[in-house]
Nucleic acid binder design. Structure first.
Ligand SMILES: NC(=O)c1ccc[n+]([C@@H]2O[C@H](COP(=O)([O-])OP(=O)(O)OC[C@H]3O[C@@H](n4cnc5c(N)ncnc54)[C@H](O)[C@@H]3O)[C@@H](O)[C@H]2O)c1
Ligand SMILES: NC(=O)c1ccc[n+]([C@@H]2O[C@H](COP(=O)([O-])OP(=O)(O)OC[C@H]3O[C@@H](n4cnc5c(N)ncnc54)[C@H](O)[C@@H]3O)[C@@H](O)[C@H]2O)c1
Lengths: 222, 222
DNA sequence: AAATATTTGTGAAATAAATAACAAAAAAAC
DNA sequence: GTTTTTTTGTTATTTATTTCACAAATATTT
């Protein structure tokens, strides 16, 4: 199986579309429908499914319940994924307050900050001292972390996360993290994302629908 | 010139690396240095430059000041880019408070919300009623907008933006926006970004350095 | 000033990703 | 129960992106 970032993102979008189809009362679905719903070709849908070992029935399409279950299984949604955040500033606090993770079986179980003013045992998601990150993650066996600290602190925080057993990081700090141990890093640079919009909308360069689309969600409509 | 999302993101990273080199006192730089700094091959650096018409001197590399100026020009940083935000909730407020846009010549000049409690003429960035979006954008000739409203309001807000003359949108709502007029859309779905981390760090699938790297900033170190 | 070493710029080759095409399967129609 | 129609699954093709490789240029050394 050779998955890539884009194909995983598409699986997630198929799942969301599927959910909508299901609530509309549909029981089965065709690759064409999914393709239309998320804006790719039906070949792409079938190819993606093929890569992840998902099969349907010829002429019969896919049973929505079955497909939904398979996608959830592939995307690790059979169990709740526990996540921690480092940095309860603008971005960290925004993520903590967001209630859209729950329905994706993602649960932010704790946050850590160096600023004592941010600490709280009683908040919906407790905020602890950064010193408690390693023992907490260790004890709970947490594997996923979010970095929302200033750039200057990001590498140090990352190192602690890796030490504590974290194996995947979503990073918002605008730098390239380095690690001696294996760890998946997904860095989202919001400034760059905005710069991309500025570039393509002001350069007058013709971009094609789908060129940005499949990538990280960008597309051009007309 | 055939630019794509990734190449533009790389230009931005070259520029940042260049800034660091400059502050270290360097005057000229080679494709190899830039490659090492941002984690790509030197071929990639030279190819990128070639695509955007940037040239250096054989054996002499690139003059940092000159290269910096060219990158700034390509990325539209000769003038300040004015941007508006719709939705001053978790994400919208985080962006408003962030001070990292300024040094990239991006200025958020106003925000718009449907909730009267959010309105403020006196805030560092004023927050107005959504009704004022179209006249404001029209009058100021603003071309870039950020959508940070709930999914249910996103399409309506987007339509208003396009009507008012906006030509590029950074969208955080998890849906596919549709438009009758041409507009560049870059949708960032933070849930999907986190799902990607979860997938690759728990699937045990071997991913290769660079596979996610160049895409939206994700990479794996070991 | 000539020789040497190094680095660019670019076309060719390789790799990766998306789309097209179609045989095979199986619903639906007759 | 046979035929027709439709849709999958997969292989082939196309398109896009990255890397390779090397001639040409030009710093640097001798
Ligand atoms: N806010 C945005 O819109 C935005 C946009 C682009 C990039 N970013 C990046 O995201 C990251 C977070 O941005 P922000 O605006 O939320 O920052 P912020 O300054 O609002 O918050 C940072 C938080 O991290 C805490 N912190 C500092 N050092 C720490 C440490 N060593 N350990 C734990 N916590 C520590 C601070 O106390 C603070 O609460 C930054 O790297 C920033 O560059 C943010
Ligand atoms: N906060 C996160 O961490 C997060 C994560 C993933 C995705 N998102 C997405 O980002 C978007 C914003 O999320 P949020 O958490 O900031 O939401 P939020 O509910 O905190 O804020 C939304 C804001 O938009 C305003 N609003 C509502 N309707 C409006 C309209 N028609 N015009 C103008 N303003 C309007 C509300 O008054 C509120 O201030 C949502 O689509 C959400 O799904 C957010």
């Amino acid at each position: 199986m050779i998955a890539n970032k884009k194909s995983v993102a598409r699986l997630s979008r198929y799942k969301n579309a599927l959910h909508r189809f299901k609530t509309m009362g549909l029981v089965r679905i065709f690759s064409d429908n999914l393709a239309d719903a998320i804006g790719v070709t039906s070949s792409q849908v079938r190819k993606d499914f093929s890569v992840f070992g998902i099969t349907g029935s010829k002429r019969g399409g896919y049973q929505i319940d079955d497909l939904f279950a398979q996608l959830n299984n592939i995307l690790g949604k059979d169990q709740i994924q526990e996540v921690i955040i480092a940095g309860v500033g603008n971005i960290g606090a925004a993520l903590l307050k967001y209630n859209g993770f729950e329905k994706e079986k993602i649960k932010i179980v704790a946050a850590f900050d160096i600023d004592a003013q941010k600490w709280s045992d009683t908040a919906p998601v407790p905020v602890y001292s950064l010193d408690r990150l390693i023992p907490f993650v260790n004890a709970r066996g947490i594997k996923i972390g979010i970095i929302a600290v200033p750039e200057s602190a990001a590498q140090m925080v990352f190192d602690r996360m890796v030490t504590s057993g974290i194996r995947g990081v979503l990073n918002f700090a605008p730098l390239r993290l380095r690690s001696p141990k294996q760890c998946v890093i997904n860095s989202v640079n919001l400034v760059t994302e905005l710069e991309n919009v500025i570039f393509f909308s002001t350069s007058g360069q013709r971009i094609f629908l789908g060129e940005l689309e499949a990538d990280a969600g960008a597309h051009q409509v007309e």
